[in-house]
Nucleic acid binder design. Structure first.
Lengths: 203, 203
DNA sequence: TAATTGTAATGACGCGGTGTCATTTTGTCA
DNA sequence: TGACAAAATGACACCGCGTCATTACAATTA
């Protein structure tokens, strides 16, 4: 979290700093992000940066949190709406994320973030809290499991885990030159495979 | 690729350098790996490092390649053996990788690599070539597709893509304190979901 | 208005790691 | 033994980092 000093700044100055930061974060993966460049872009003194933030990770987490929270709220609502259908909830999540992250003037920034997402969970970059297993399990009771092959809670977690990783991967592909339409079709097909299986039913 | 100078070194010295490197790569994610530490561990001069390798990425790629090639050969054979069953091939891949990377004295090294694997493909770290879509497609003709819901090549790629990402994720979990047995059971269950679907068949 | 006090901004500084390169050492062959 | 190429070495200049003593500013009080 940014320090109080930053939060007290005028809206204008805050934006200037955040824009400078996004520009730098869009340039290279976080390890290569240079605080020197950020303070130069933002026209603040080097020391000021450390008066505002603990580190570049702190700053990035703040920027991401704003975006994640927004999606988070929407997805929570969607889960309530689609009560009974995890798959629809994930498709909605996909659409929300594409809308927010791909169709965006700050595309390059988000591209950098998504492309460099790690397979591991612990990282800073797990953007959307509500789809982390420890959170989604909260919704377990709510989902309609009668039509699904779910016996124990753990089954549900395994399924969410697959949905998670497939959805994230599908988003990443949007940043890799493939057309948005193509990506979505492929994603829907994958969801379908998950729902009904890859092996043909015997007639 | 290492420079010729390195390859010409005595086996003993090469091993000393590689061991020093693995030790350092096991310590922290690659961005934080310090060449200073490597040369100190290996007891060579700083300048020598650059006589041997272009960069730390170059060195890491070399170490990984050795391991990847080994798995690669085995998995190719398995694909021929299990002709007709992509799923079995991936389960074998999983087992091979767990054996090679988890049950290993160099566990910490591989842990660091896997934990920091990126969701994106372009990266250095795509260890096993034969499961990259552009490679697996070569096996397309070989697989028995009659029992699968596959109409076009692209369907096959989408399926491999899911298998890929689920398998990798399952490996990662082995490094996260979960028991090996538990991880394997969960993985097999996920493969089952993929094969037969999550939604119950109507009787 | 001037004095006081607390808060924010500043940039010079020491630190540590980087990649280079001129020099030295080693090894080989006439 | 000398001459030559290949390899090893570590001092060096460079760069970005995080800190911190100092300065600037704003608000409060007399």
């Amino acid at each position: 979290m940014p320090k109080e000093t930053f939060l007290k700044l005028s809206e204008e100055k805050k934006q200037k700093v955040l824009n400078a930061a996004k520009r730098e974060f869009a340039r290279v993966p976080i390890e290569q992000v240079s605080i020197k460049n950020i303070v130069e872009n933002a026209e603040i003194a080097r020391g000021s940066f450390y008066q505002y933030f603990e580190s570049k990770e702190d700053l990035l987490a703040y920027i991401l949190k704003e975006n994640a929270d927004e999606i988070d709220t929407k997805i929570k609502n969607k889960i309530y709406e689609t009560k009974g259908d995890v798959f629809d909830a994930y498709i909605e999540l996909y659409d929300l994320m594409v809308k927010k992250f791909v169709e965006n003037t700050e595309q390059e920034f988000f591209k950098q973030i998504f492309i460099n997402l790690r397979l591991s969970d612990e990282s800073l970059f797990t953007l959307i809290k509500s789809v982390k297993p420890q959170n989604i399990i909260k919704y377990f009771e709510m989902f309609d499991k009668t039509s699904l092959k779910i016996n124990v809670k753990n089954d549900f977690i395994l399924i969410c885990d697959m949905l998670n990783v497939i959805t994230r991967r599908a988003i990443v592909k949007n940043f890799k030159g493939n057309s948005q339409e193509e990506c979505r079709q492929n994603f829907l097909k994958q969801i379908d495979y998950l729902k009904y299986g890859i092996i043909k039913k015997e007639e």
